Computed example of a mutant assay.
Amino acid sequence: MDLRTVGETGSTNTDLLALARAGAPEGTWLRAERQTGGRGRQGRTWVSPAGNLYASTLVRLTPVDPPAPTLALVAAVAMHQAISTLGPGQALQIKWPNDILSGPAKLAGILLERANDAVVIGFGVNLAHHPDGLERPVTSLAALTGTAPDPGAFLDVLADAFARWLGTWRRRGLAPVRERWLASAHPRGTALSTPAGVGLFEGLDETGALRLRLADGSVRVIHAGDVFLI
């Protein structure tokens, strides 16, 4: 495992994608103390003041690995575990596929990007700060607990958790990751707003896709798109 830190960059995902194309190995991590061009899903801007975690890691896919999109669940359970370790006592939940919430408020997010056999996974965690005035509520560990862990120390815990869950995903497939994800997520029956409409959370299918029960009793399977708690 190779953990690198820079003072400032545009985006750790962009930088690590470039390193991947240049031959960087799996297990490379890049953390920035501050980002000037951080982004979330669908190109959204990710506000990046110093004191939070902005880090990306690289996975090199092999022909026998489970499907690459299921790495979103691997990343989610690893991040949930890391936050729970350093912010004990908080009622944290995973929201499909890989946001971490405290109540209705978003605490952390993940962005996966791929270039050939390289999957770069970016982690953003509000440790010391969180933005105000957004459409959806957000929070930080400092707001929840009164203190914020050092981002470098947080990365050590996260990198270890991710390595362990990545190993499980490779050795045993998606099933144990999916089981841990479900145990850490909002419960079945939670009302959700999705691209397929409003419905109730019915768990995940065997591929990690979201199962949504609609008002007419039918179940839709959602593979991508924004999902919000109601």
Rank of each mutant, 00 (worst) to 15 (best):
L73F: 03
G51K: 10
V47W: 03
P149F: 09
L127T: 05
R60C: 10
L92R: 13
V120P: 13
E113Q: 11
G51N: 10
Q81K: 04
P69L: 00
A68G: 02
V125Y: 10
V77P: 05
P104G: 13
P67T: 10
R44I: 05
S48C: 06
D99K: 07
L71I: 06
P137E: 15
G103T: 08
G43A: 10
N116A: 15
Q90V: 12
P149L: 12
P67F: 14
D150T: 08
T62M: 02
A148P: 02
L101A: 03
D65F: 15
A75T: 09
I121C: 05
N52P: 10
P137D: 11
G122E: 01
V74A: 04
K95V: 05
E135A: 11
A68R: 11
V120N: 00
A142Y: 11
D99F: 04
T57V: 14
I121D: 02
A75L: 04
V120C: 05
A72L: 00
L141Q: 05
G124H: 09
A91D: 15
S48K: 14
T147F: 07
A68W: 15
L92A: 00
A143N: 14
A76L: 04
L61V: 03
P137H: 11
R136P: 00
L86S: 03
S102I: 06
Y54Q: 13
A128C: 01
M79H: 05
A115Q: 05
W96I: 08
I100R: 01
V120M: 02
D65L: 02
Q93I: 00
G87H: 11
G146C: 08
A68C: 06
A91P: 07
V59A: 08
L111G: 00
G122F: 07
E135G: 06
T85G: 03
P49T: 09
V77F: 00
L101W: 01
D65E: 04
N52A: 10
D132P: 04
D150Y: 14
A75H: 09
H130K: 10
K106F: 00
A55L: 12
D150S: 15
G103Q: 12
E113M: 01
D65P: 04
